[in-house]
Design a protein around this nucleic acid. Structure first.
Length: 878
RNA sequence: GGGCGGAUAGCUCAGUUGGGAGAGCGCAGCCCUUACAAGGCUGAAGUCGCAGGUUCGAGCCCUGCUCCGCCCACCA
């Protein structure tokens, strides 16, 4: 174990400067191997696989959030003694890479076809080597404690082997098959898209009513008219029964055509004219209708988005150009009945936003239905917990209505489909290894030119990264992984596929928990996008406010829920201030440690010491409970409140009394001990959230061990000290009451007040014992006397059954006190009326639980007592 | 078309078994009190979207409505 860095001798700056601290500690942790995990390390395994960011990516707020949350969990578990592994890596993102590279090529006036497959792939790899590391470097900047020695890439040799293994097994089981169906085709990307990869967008269009002989029907895509092979009506539609089964000869743009009329349930008789044209080649519904009625597929739009030879005079025209032209032509021929405006959803390619064209083509599919059933059961039986629970419903809905998954893509960057065709004997071979010749006839073979959907390989991620298909120690130790942290946007794309593939290939769930976090939006609630120019760069935020402040902000925003969170500078700034507060609190402690002997017997703690200890214990419990339930916000807020409100605002102020004016050296030593031990544990508790500043300060404080990263995670060891909390509460209320009068009376903080406390019986001893504390924190001379009489010209404060008199003689006009009292009286009068009203209703006193009624009675008694005191005081004032 | 969620202080949002509403920021007043002005103390501010219902009691449970947001979907 490397020795810890000695605390710098130089005095500590009065502001926390994150940059140097962050730059120093991350490489040091990595160098010491704290991020590394091994199956034979001690402790129960705890494993997270990172949602692999696209190699194309650079860190955005979504990455920052998901990886901060994972790092918080991982760091806490590592400190807590788990054998902790966080597997990092990146995804090859076929289509995203294609979009980027093809844009580059376009700028050079080239297409990928000009380049050819080999050269394109070479370029893609080069690009990956150059730019693919960006996001990984940025994750380090975020403090992510991934085991970088285990970094994976979906196109690594190992993972590619896993992809082939999965494909071959599923094929052998008959779950992967090839078929001709209508697909979503992106004419720009030149590839098929899965249904999930098609986005919908509302657009205005012309609803064109075309005359088909005796019939009229409406369409928004008149150009597909050229591919019509039928007309369809609802079987029960009396208007059209006479036409069903007939073949009509009707005039059209390219002369007369024969067209068959069929009856099909899919037609909605109430929409439009109740007649639809059937274009099996260019519409999913029509494709199904065509299949049912044996209507031929007539492809008039090609893969390039231009009209085919079958479009006759329109051949070669762009599909949208053709739409305009054909309407003009039909108008000239009198074939158009009317045109109405219409708003409807069009399908867009999720990567390049090109309008998707439905086309018939041969693709590879996975029959996911049987896999989905198993994956549904896993969630139903709680073997996978989806949190927040409400997401299960979405998961079930999608899984229960799942359709075959189209896994082939007409792209080059990705895992090439491991299928070889022999043209000589027509055989098809699926193989784990590359084939050079046909196993049957030894003739030449050609491999399927397509690659697999990117999500096919990411669906294997939780086990492919651990060595599958080999039976590795990693796989045995860390699978199933403990939790998957991700956003709801990839619940179907990724989480569902991992659940299905993991359960099928590993016979075991890929993760126990799935924590679905919300997405991050800009301060106006807008989705961040480059085109809107509202993208907040996490690196810039970290630069300005520090990584710890940024992480803490993300954690405290991470409320379990379903609506998105917004991030604004002010939030991060507030937590930058929190870091600074912590820094200065530590500075105060550190500058008062002279003479402190660690490990010595300091004797029993005083009341404030017991109190802060009790608060700390409660905080530890809150933080652990929060983390266990993925309530990051609760956990972070608990530390924030403890550190700022309890520790800084109260305990440090109290401690100063002993530090600066210690009654005896033992007392000073006791306080030093409390300061050190409380702060040291608080730093450990906070470390997963704010790793850098906590390490820096921890190293400077007396501590055990080489690094806070590998120090134990604090755990509550004692129940709350109820007596200490109650007694300190009374003292704090007393101090607040005096301060309150000072504030309301506009008395200068510099003015030492003269205060008499008429202590109630039970509180007398306590107030006397800690009179000095009250005097210092309230800046007052305090006389405690159960039989005190009220001095003339004084303000009244009430704490419990004790009364506090603050002398105002010569300080302020009594009118101010009168005003203050009147306000208080109005308040209590209202409160009493409310409580009395409640208690006067028999139904309440008879039907509410006795303890509730008693509480109300006590409350009323208190309110009335306070009221009486205030009223008496009012007449007393004048 | 189906489903889900939201509406709480000027702003952004918490509020987990239903017992007279909280935080951060902002605002007002007083303070450079030897850790911190990126700070301290004090204070003002809410008919918890609207209308009903259940209950002794509703921000919380039920119904309806209004206004937002998201997801899914083969009405051309």
């Amino acid at each position: 174990m490397t020795e810890p860095s000695p605390p710098p001798a130089a005095p500590i700056a009065d502001r926390y400067e994150p940059a140097a601290v962050e730059a120093r500690w991350y490489p040091e942790w990595e160098r010491r191997g704290y991020f590394r995990a091994e199956p034979d390390h001690p402790g129960p395994p705890y494993c997270i696989v990172i949602p692999p960011p696209n190699v194309t990516g650079s860190l955005h707020l979504g990455h920052a959030l998901v990886n901060t949350l994972q790092d918080i969990l991982i760091r806490a578990k590592r400190m807590d003694g788990y054998n902790t592994l966080w597997v990092p890596g990146t995804d090859h993102a076929s289509i995203a890479v294609h979009v980027i590279l093809e844009r580059q090529l376009e700028a050079e006036g080239k297409t990928r076809q000009d380049l050819g497959r080999e050269a394109f792939l070479e370029r893609a790899w080069r690009w990956k080597e150059e730019s693919g590391g960006t996001i990984i470097r940025q994750l380090r900047r975020l403090g992510a404690s991934c085991d970088w020695t285990r970094e994976r890439f979906t196109m690594d040799a190992g993972l590619s082997r896993a992809v082939r293994e999965a494909f071959v097994r599923l094929y052998d089981e008959g779950l992967i098959y090839q078929g001709d169906y209508i697909v979503n085709w992106c004419p720009r990307c030149q590839t098929v898209l899965a249904d999930l990869e098609v986005e919908r967008e509302e657009r205005d269009a012309d609803f064109v009513y075309i005359k088909y002989g005796p019939l009229t029907l409406g369409t928004v895509r008149p150009e597909t008219k050229l591919g019509d092979t039928g007309l369809a009506v609802h079987p029960g539609d009396p208007r059209y029964t006479q036409y069903v089964g007939r073949t009509l000869r009707i005039p059209s743009v390219n002369g007369e055509i024969d067209i068959q009329v069929v009856a099909d349930e899919a037609v909605d008789p109430d929409f439009g004219t109740g007649v639809i044209k059937v274009t099996p080649g260019h519409d999913p519904t029509d494709f199904e209708i065509g299949r049912r009625h044996n209507l031929p597929v007539r492809t008039v739009i090609g893969f390039d988005g231009r009209m085919t030879a079958l479009a006759g005079t329109y051949a070669g025209l762009d599909r949208f150009e053709c739409r305009k032209r054909i309407v003009e032509d039909m108008q000239a021929l009198g074939l158009i009945d009317r045109i109405e405006p219409y708003r409807h959803a069009v399908g867009l390619c999720y990567r390049c936003k090109t309008v998707v064209e439905p086309l018939v083509s041969k693709q590879w599919y996975v029959n996911v239905k049987p896999l989905a059933e198993v994956a549904i059961a896993a969630v139903r039986e709680d073997r996978i917990r989806i949190l927040p629970r409400s997401w299960s419903k979405t998961y079930f809905h999608w899984m229960e209505n799942i359709r075959p998954w189209c896994i082939s893509r007409q792209l080059w960057w990705g895992h090439r489909i491991p299928v070889w065709y022999c043209d000589a004997d027509g055989s098809v071979h699926v193989s784990r290894t590359d084939l050079a010749a046909c196993p049957k006839c030894s003739g030449p073979v050609r491999q399927d030119p397509d690659v697999l959907d990117t999500w096919f390989s990411s669906g294997l991620w939780p086990f492919s990264t651990l060595g599958w298909p080999d039976d590795t120690p990693e796989l045995r130790t860390y699978y199933p992984t403990s939790v998957l942290v991700t956003g709801y946007d990839i619940l179907f794309f990724w989480v569902a596929r991992m659940a299905m593939l993991g359960l099928h290939l590993m016979k075991e769930v890929p993760f126990r928990d799935v924590y679905i976090h919300t997405l991050v939006r800009d301060p106006q609630g807008q989705k961040m996008s480059k085109s809107k120019g509202n993208v907040i760069d996490p690196l810039g935020v970290m630069e300005r406010f520090g990584t710890d402040a940024f992480r803490f902000t993300l954690a405290i925003l991470a409320v379990p829920g379903v609506h998105d969170i917004r991030i604004a500078d002010e939030r991060v700034e507030a937590h930058r201030n929190f870091a600074n507060k912590l820094w200065n609190a530590a500075r105060l402690v550190l500058s008062n440690l002279d003479g402190y002997e660690r490990g010595g017997d300091v004797g029993p703690a005083g009341l404030p010491g017991r109190w802060i200890e009790s608060r700390l214990q409660a905080t530890m419990t809150s933080v652990r409970d929060g983390l266990d339930a993925y309530r990051f916000s609760d956990a972070a807020a608990a530390i924030y409140q403890f550190l700022w409100n309890d520790f800084c605002d109260w305990y440090l102020e109290i401690a100063k009394v002993s530090l600066y004016h210690a009654a005896d050296p033992a007392e000073r030593n006791r306080v030093q001990h409390a300061l050190v031990t409380v702060l040291e544990r608080t730093l450990r508790l906070l470390h997963p959230f704010m790793p850098f500043i906590t390490e820096e300060l921890w190293q400077r404080l007396p501590h055990e061990g080489a690094s806070i990263m590998v120090a134990p995670y604090p755990k509550a060891a004692a129940p709350p000290d109820a007596a200490a909390e109650r007694e300190m509460g009374l003292l704090m209320e007393t101090i607040t009451a005096i301060r309150n009068i000072r504030g309301e009376m506009r008395l200068s903080p510099a003015q030492t007040l003269t205060v008499t406390v008429k202590a109630a019986a039970g509180d007398d001893a306590l107030l006397r014992a800690h009179g000095a504390l009250v005097e210092t924190l309230a800046r007052a001379r305090v006389t405690t006397d159960p039989r005190a009489t009220r001095p003339r010209a004084s303000a009244l404060g009430v704490v419990g059954r004790s009364e506090i008199y603050v002398e105002l003689e010569g300080l302020v006009d009594l009118a101010a006190e009168r005003q203050r009292l009147e306000k208080e009286i109005r308040r209590t009068t209202e409160a009493i009326a409310f409580t009395r009203g409640k208690l006067s209703r028999p139904d309440f006193t008879e039907r509410a639980p006795a303890e509730i009624v008693d509480k109300e009675r006590e409350k009323l008694a208190e309110q009335e007592a306070l009221h009486a005191k205030l009223v008496a005081s009012l007449s007393w004032v004048g």
